[in-house]
Amino acid sequence: MTDLVALAVTIKAWGRELGFADIRITDVDLSHREAGFQAWLDKGYHGEMDYMASHGMKRARPAELVPGTVRVITARMPYLPRNGDGDWRGREQVRADDASAAVISIYARGRDYHKVLRARLQQLASRIETETGPFGYRVFTDSAPVMEVALAEKAGLGWRGKHTLLLNREAGSMFFLGELFTDLPLPVDEAVGSHCGQCSACIDICPTQAIVAPYELDARRCISYLTIELKGSIPLELRSLIGNRVYGCDDCQLYCPWNKFAQNTGLPDFDVRHGLDQASLVQLLGWSEDDFSRNTEGSAIRRIGHERWLRNMAVGLGNAASTHKGQAEIVEALRLRAGHPSPIVREHVEWALQQHMQQN
């Protein structure tokens, strides 16, 4: 056991060397989360995300997902770009108020985080193997049926906020999570208490009121779900609430008081690519399929495909109807897409044009 204690300390040091802000270790008992997860599924809050239900309770049972697992090494990695200053929230709020701007979630503006975290967790596993010899493990990051937040919370990386994301007193919530399932019986870390108190900032600010109760999210109303996970038409009653958020939504994080402590990454991987922190809706609607493929290479954005990309831009431009900035340019850009071969794109473009007609 003494060797395992020393190994746990070494693993955490190696993790920091690999760009992780913190590494913690937990056991695999998530039985306390099973009833809540099932109730969430029963309400249909997962929407079209069938993969949330397809594995049953395996999501809450790491040892069933990867037989032999007795511990989970959990890691967090900040993703605010390196060159940012302390007023990132102010800048994002100003941009959100510019109806012509295309607002893309901060996490998606750089390299695909799946690739970054998986590669570095694999490097961590390889270092452990040099110390222990061959051992059983499997690496995950936002993939497979894994309760990332529950594991990270139990390991002491933070607590589950009312918006359902993990919060940390020293780092807010602007970080990715990753896991290394292992058969090494390492010593476990202690959980920390919740520090949300009576605050309801995330609930109050959510544009679509997707946080239906503290710690409970109806994904079907969440802008991240609507712009990324939803494959078909965005419900009419929610389109105007999306505003200019075209890939994900950071509002619940922007207004969370704990994010005044959010940390910048030390990695170039999460630097902004292709000016996605400055792009306009008109500019991005104009991307051809080749443009989209080229400009999203190595990015998490690519997974939604060009059709959903144009759908999202059309909704954003429809919501720009109330602005007096570049109206003619917006309408012309929409008309150029009115004959698109995709019925989904055509539907949302037509809706957007109607918004502008009603304003005039």
Score class of each variant (00 low, 15 high):
142 D>F: 11
335 R>L: 11
175 F>K: 00
214 P>R: 05
61 R>D: 09
220 R>P: 02
245 R>W: 02
138 R>H: 11
241 L>Y: 03
16 R>A: 15
13 A>V: 14
251 D>I: 01
87 D>R: 15
240 S>Q: 14
52 M>N: 01
346 R>Y: 07
147 M>Q: 15
215 Y>P: 00
317 L>A: 02
360 N>V: 15
171 A>K: 00
278 Q>A: 12
195 H>Y: 09
140 F>E: 05
139 V>I: 12
320 A>T: 08
126 S>P: 07
203 I>L: 14
82 R>L: 06
201 A>G: 09
268 P>F: 10
311 R>V: 04
228 I>M: 04
128 I>A: 09
47 G>V: 00
153 E>P: 01
109 R>H: 13
193 G>S: 08
243 G>Q: 00
171 A>Y: 00
298 G>S: 14
179 E>K: 02
197 G>E: 07
180 L>Y: 05
24 R>F: 05
200 S>R: 15
182 T>Y: 06
355 Q>N: 09
178 G>M: 02
304 I>S: 02
172 G>K: 04
21 A>W: 11
71 R>T: 03
5 V>W: 11
110 G>F: 01
39 A>G: 14
182 T>F: 13
54 S>E: 09
77 M>Q: 08
59 R>G: 08
212 V>T: 12
6 A>Q: 15
225 Y>L: 00
287 W>R: 02
133 G>L: 11
97 D>K: 15
264 N>Q: 13
271 D>G: 07
126 S>W: 08
236 L>E: 13
171 A>L: 09
192 V>E: 08
116 V>I: 15
119 A>V: 03
299 S>W: 01
152 A>N: 08
289 E>W: 08
192 V>Y: 04
81 P>L: 11
354 Q>G: 15
126 S>A: 13
265 T>R: 04
284 L>T: 14
309 W>S: 06
76 R>P: 01
